[in-house]
């Protein structure tokens, strides 16, 4: 309360002094009582007034606060890296537990299955596409593992098949990832799609990820894709 009006700055320290006028019982008398020199409307009433102890203390404290803020900022600026970060899933840690499908603040989740073609085996029996014990290797409902039918199976030259993810349908449940990682090359992996992710301060899925697979990565390299080299 730095900008107390002048009448309260009599310095006697007593509320009674400043309240001299209102001590009178008649309300009418108050309404017409007016100090002579007060600007009726000013955004900066205190600026014109002579500096008082309160103003001095206020100014000093302001300076102190600014100093603390500046110090903290420079400290943070020094420790903080320049590079912006975004969330991503580390496929080596991911256990495809289905939390990604259910805990994202977005519906459907910003996490999608990503097909990394260079390491895909183009298997005829794709364990990410088919049920563990498929009745037949065709696109019939009873054979598919994807709950939303988001994997598209396309025949290439015999016996190879290409598998594509329809991201509009994919909900990021990771059922196919489990199949592919456990039995296949692991070319399916869950990734945060940055065209959808709003990059929350604290990712809601990261909070519930049992495998600690959510990491902040530099925005310039926002994906953690497996490559053939990494496969060894």
């Amino acid at each position: 309360m730095a900008d107390q009006h002048p009448s309260s700055q009599c310095g006697c320290g007593s509320g009674a002094c400043g309240n001299g006028g209102s001590a009178k019982p008649s309300p009418a008398s108050i309404q017409f009582k007016k100090p002579a020199s007060a600007p009726a409307k000013s955004a900066v009433p205190a600026a014109a007034a002579p500096p008082s102890r309160r103003q001095f203390v206020g100014g000093a404290l302001r300076g102190a606060f600014l100093f603390v803020l500046g110090a903290a900022t420079s400290l943070i600026a020094r420790v903080s890296q320049k590079e912006r970060t975004v969330w991503q899933i580390d496929p080596t840690k991911c256990i495809a537990c289905t939390n990604c499908a259910n805990h994202c603040v977005l519906t459907p989740s910003a996490v999608k299955c990503v097909q990394q073609y260079p390491i895909c085996g183009y298997c005829k029996l794709c364990t990410g596409y088919f049920e563990p014990e498929p009745n037949a290797l065709n696109t019939a409902a009873e054979n598919q593992v994807c709950p939303t039918g988001a994997i598209e199976r396309r025949a290439l030259e015999d016996p190879y098949y290409e598998y594509n993810i329809d991201e509009e349908l994919c909900i990021g449940c990771g059922k196919c990832v489990v199949g592919c990682v456990v039995f296949g090359n692991g070319s399916f992996s869950l990734q945060i799609r940055h065209d959808r992710c709003v990059n929350c301060n604290e990712c809601a899925i990261a909070m519930v990820c049992p495998a600690d697979a959510f990491v902040r990565v530099p925005a310039s390299q926002p994906y953690l894709l497996k490559t053939r080299e990494k496969q060894g």
Binding site: N102, E133, E142, Q144, V145, P147, T148, I171
Partner: peptide
Amino acid sequence: THPLDHPQVIKLKEQLVREP
């Protein structure tokens, strides 16, 4: 939540494994 998690589907699929 997802169609394939429906218990009836799971049951039928298990049956299909037995009677392919």
